[in-house]
Simulated scan of single mutants.
Amino acid sequence: MEKRISFKFNARYEILGTPSEDVEELWFVCHGHGQLAKYFIRKFDAIASPKRLIVAPEGLFRYYLQGFAGRVGATWMTKEDRVSDIGNYITYLSAVYNEVTSQLKKDLKITFFGFSQGAATISRLATMSDLSFDRLVLWAGIFPPDLPPLQSTDRLKDKQCFLVYGLQDEFLTEARIKEQESIAEQIQITPESITFEGKHELSSEVLESLAEIPYRHQLYFRA
């Protein structure tokens, strides 16, 4: 007979920048499968500034990328016990979010960003929590098919949504793009597509261009 238990859990996250009242913009970024936050966050050096804070949580499950030794990566979840894992990482990500934003000023622009597997992770955080944010960026990843339709529509209806991918991305195939379009249609969202010449990777140049796009709304205000 399977049983469940809850307990305190210690987890880590990385920041690029210094939390202060000078910060005007927060990027909450989730890495892809097999990555670690301390390396993933370096990809955002190109857009770091005293007024922009980058926060990179790390997947709660770490493993050896090859065999039983050597390089280590992290993942957000697998197919095993997935509902529980999703609930756990939403609780974890919410705790990171609340800790960081408690150190910042009340009016703040917030970008939720997910790369590859992290795109599904950040999509679930955006739609299955009550955390405030202004825009959602899915880079080399798509909306997961298990998003709650009505809740997702309500949570994303006034948000800027971007789908960014390399035209040579070996994982984001035409079939996957069609799946993205189908899910987006179900939740009544039309992401703006941004493409570039490249594979399954982050482009500093495109990242800089994305960071320069004005926020349509400034919705986050803490009482």
Rank of each mutant, 00 (worst) to 15 (best):
Ile5Val: 13
Phe7Ile: 06
Lys8Val: 10
Lys8Ala: 13
Lys8Asn: 14
Asn10Phe: 11
Arg12Lys: 13
Glu14Ala: 10
Ile15Cys: 07
Gly17Ala: 01
Gly17Leu: 01
Ser20Lys: 02
Asp22Gln: 15
Glu24Thr: 11
Glu24Tyr: 05
Glu25Leu: 00
Glu25Asp: 05
Cys30His: 00
Gly32Gln: 05
Gly32Pro: 03
His33Ser: 12
Ile41Thr: 07
Lys43Gln: 14
Phe44His: 10
Ala46Cys: 15
Ala46Tyr: 11
Ala48His: 14
Ser49Phe: 02
Arg52Tyr: 03
Ala56Arg: 09
Glu58Ser: 11
Gly59Trp: 06
Leu65Ser: 08
Gln66Asp: 12
Arg71Gly: 06
Gly73Glu: 08
Ala74Asp: 07
Thr75Glu: 14
Arg82Ile: 11
Ser84Trp: 11
Gly87Phe: 07
Gly87Asn: 15
Asn88Ile: 01
Ile90Trp: 08
Tyr92Gly: 02
Val96Glu: 10
Leu104Trp: 04
Lys105His: 00
Lys106Cys: 02
Phe113His: 07
Gly114Pro: 03
Ser116Phe: 00
Ile122Pro: 02
Leu125Lys: 03
Asp130Leu: 08
Asp134Gly: 01
Val137Arg: 06
Ile142Gln: 10
Asp146Phe: 09
Pro149Arg: 01
Leu150Gly: 13
Ser152Thr: 11
Arg155Phe: 01
Arg155Ala: 13
Lys157Glu: 10
Lys157Asn: 10
Leu163Met: 12
Leu163Ile: 08
Tyr165Lys: 10
Gly166Val: 00
Leu167Phe: 06
Phe171Ser: 10
Thr173Asn: 04
Thr173Leu: 05
Glu174Asn: 14
Arg176Ala: 09
Glu179Tyr: 04
Glu181His: 10
Ile187Pro: 04
Ile189Asn: 09
Thr190Ser: 14
Thr190Trp: 07
Ile194Asn: 08
Ile194Gly: 08
Glu197Asn: 14
Lys199Ile: 09
His200Met: 00
Ser203Lys: 07
Glu205Met: 10
Val206Leu: 07
Tyr215Ile: 02
His217Ala: 11
Gln218Phe: 04
Leu219Phe: 11
